[in-house]
């Protein structure tokens, strides 16, 4: 019986790690701009599909493929910001969010054109049998995803708290006018945040594709789950997104295991709503920050 419970939890960690990694991507743009980038899911999909293209179709070496994928998706993030977000300076926040929806539709259209509708996959980073822990199993690739997620949080934390660039970036969202007054190039910070977010999405896509496969229209469902994870933990809080991701993943798995698999997403959402109603700023968000920011 314990083995079964353990298996449910490990399964929850598997999906939770995916949600966490996607959720992290939302935070960087949010921290710099207050925008929720609804094309974040497409960055993840591009990570997986472009990685497939380099490593399987062109047969390039593993690390070269990763670097090329990250560069390419980062470039797309840059283009997205310069072409659609930058021209909208000072526009209504909702308009900016809607334009990320429009961009996500365009990106999906391009992906469908280039890759078709089939799912894609490539071998996990390390080949071999899954790891057995007290009778329950977990894929090796999940450990990679976990490791990458933790590394990313560490780097993000250092970036936003220890570097001038990072501090400048988070100043932009809280008060762009004040940031400008102290000499921060707000426009460049926003551009940088889109590049970083795109890169983080690409890394996520590269890491999760061997587990979940990847197809052109997986973006919205990944984005919704990641967004929920980020919200549950409190927007803007990196560790929060990760904890949120794992909570949602494990809740889904336990619901599927002990209640019914048809309702796993519903139960996770009900609990998310419950948390929001008692803690309107998420688990780790503070009400004080919420009142300073409009969104």
């Amino acid at each position: 019986m314990f083995t079964v419970l353990l298996q449910f939890i490990l399964s929850g960690i598997t999906v939770g790690a995916i949600y966490a990694l996607v959720g992290l991507g939302f935070n960087i743009i949010y921290n710099a701009t207050s925008i929720i980038n609804l094309a974040q899911g497409e960055f993840v999909v591009m990570g997986g599909l472009i990685m497939w293209f380099f490593s399987q179709s062109l047969q390039l070496p593993f690390f070269t493929s990763i670097i090329l994928t990250i560069l390419l998706v980062g470039l797309i993030g840059l283009m997205m910001e310069r072409l659609t977000i930058n021209p909208l300076k000072n526009a209504d926040l909702l308009l900016m969010i809607m334009i990320t929806v429009a961009v996500s539709i365009v990106l999906r259209g391009i992906l469908m054109f280039k890759f078709g509708k089939d799912p894609y996959s490539y071998p996990p980073f390390t080949e071999g049998e899954p790891i057995v822990i007290l009778g329950a199993v977990i894929q090796q690739q999940v450990l990679w995803v976990l490791g990458i997620t933790l590394t990313c949080i560490g780097l993000i934390f250092l970036f936003f708290n220890k570097t001038m660039l990072g501090k400048a970036m988070s100043a932009c969202a809280v008060n762009p006018t004040a940031a400008k007054l102290v000499g921060i190039n707000v426009s460049r910070m926003i551009m940088l945040s889109f590049i970083l977010s795109a890169i983080l999405g690409a890394i996520g896509g590269i890491a999760i594709t061997p587990i979940s496969l990847m197809e052109y229209d997986k973006g919205p469902s990944l984005a919704v789950k990641g967004f929920c994870a980020a919200i549950m933990g409190g927007l803007g809080n990196g560790m929060g997104a990760v904890v949120g991701g794992f909570i949602i993943g494990i809740l889904e798995s336990l619901t599927a295991g002990y209640i019914h698999s048809g309702f796993k997403d519903a139960v996770a959402l009900v609990i998310l709503l419950g948390i929001l109603f008692f803690k309107p700023a998420g688990l780790f968000g503070s009400k004080a920050t919420l009142s300073v920011r409009k969104f």
Binding site: I36, V224, L235, G262, L269, V270, L276, F277, P280, F295
Partner: peptide, 19 residues
């Protein structure tokens, strides 16, 4: 709730109805 949090709460409601 405010802003994004309200959006997610209504989104969650819609998804629950869908399920």
């Amino acid at each position: 709730l405010k802003g994004h949090y309200l959006a997610v709460a209504t989104l969650g409601f819609g998804e629950i109805i869908y399920i």
